[in-house]
């Protein structure tokens, strides 16, 4: 009786249809937790700058940012409680104007949220292939909130006529954009974008922001 170990590599390739191996659940949630820690840190820096007058945000915009930071922290806490270990908790800003110029800040938030949506979209597909439908649910429960952040930030950007923000409405897509073929590719995009060590806009440490999160008005804090 042949065991699978007796099969040649060509048989194994046929078996797998040339498909790559899924990332493990551990790998996926590690990357997700890293992204959430990045979001908590970046938004936390913006909040600090807004409160000290270095970043001109309206009180309403500041409320949005604080709630978004709280939500990212809730995502981080859930992932870590599930066993996630962030790859790093020290980040860099690709551009110092992110923390001082409202237009740059809003555009950056939109771009980051689109990357997070696409990352959780990839995660959902991998969870499906890994036979984890419960995790598929969580991925969409988080991805939906990231989409809310995207639309909300776009609303402020469009209202302020921020250049380089396409579309005439905040809800400008019929289907959210797919960007990645793996969650690791999303991490790679963050790295090449200057968020994971190579940015020149300053260094952020998650521990400086994690305990100063204002969750006023935020509910549904668990999936």
């Amino acid at each position: 009786m042949a065991a699978l170990g007796d099969l040649g590599s060509s048989d194994l390739a046929t078996l797998r249809g040339g498909a790559k191996t899924c990332e493990s659940v551990q790998t996926i949630i590690n990357i997700a937790a890293t992204a959430e820690a990045l979001a908590v840190s970046a938004l936390g820096a913006a909040i600090g700058n807004a409160e000290s007058g270095k970043l001109q945000l309206s009180s309403e915009q500041l409320r949005f940012v604080k709630a978004a930071q709280c939500e990212e922290k809730d995502h981080y806490d859930y992932l870590v409680a599930a066993g996630a270990r962030p790859l790093t908790t020290t980040f860099t800003l690709p551009n110092s104007r992110i923390g001082t110029d409202p237009a740059t800040f809003l555009k950056t938030v939109v771009g980051l949220e689109e990357a997070f949506i696409a990352a959780y979209m990839a995660a959902a597909q991998e969870f499906a292939s890994l036979g984890q439908p419960s995790l598929v649910r969580v991925a969409l429960q988080i991805g939906g909130v990231e989409a809310e952040h995207r639309a909300h930030a776009r609303f402020y950007a469009i209202t302020a006529n921020v250049p380089g923000v396409p579309g005439k409405v905040p809800n400008n897509v019929a289907f959210e954009k797919a960007m990645f073929t793996s969650v690791g590719a999303a991490a790679g995009a963050l790295k090449s974008g200057g968020w994971l060590g190579s940015g020149s806009g300053g260094t952020l440490d998650f521990s400086d922001f994690a305990s100063h999160v204002d969750c006023s008005g935020v509910s549904n804090t668990r999936p």
Partner: peptide, 18 residues
């Protein structure tokens, strides 16, 4: 009013590790 009018873009095609 909207773009991205169909569910396109890259998909994830993978199999669990054997």
């Amino acid at each position: 009013y909207v773009s991205h009018t169909y569910p396109g873009g890259p998909s994830v095609s993978c199999m669990p590790a054997m």
